[in-house]
Amino acid sequence: MPRRYCQDSPDAITSCVLEDMVLLYHRPSGQTHMVISPVPEILATLDGGAALTADEVLGQLASLYDLGAAEEAGPQVEAHLAELTELGLVRIA
């Protein structure tokens, strides 16, 4: 069974765009994270509250952006989701 990811909680993160960077303030931990694309876009796919696999996240991103070769983009999305999970910004459903 592939792993499913979901947002920490609906209001866990508040964000602010500064030029090409996005600042994420994570309310439960009080930590500020500075991220760049594709992290904000990946987090946005989980905004609806659904628990998605990395492939489903990739599918949503592919419908909005030109991601290039899927065999390269897939592992990158998976790696970002794993990193975001470690930071507490995303949870495993």
Binding site: T14, C16, L18, L23, Y25, G30, T32
Partner: peptide, 14 residues
């Protein structure tokens, strides 16, 4: 300061 500090600083920077 937590979130109020984040809000104040991001506003200043922007």
């Amino acid at each position: 300061l937590g979130e109020p500090g984040f809000a104040a600083l991001t506003r200043f920077v922007a």
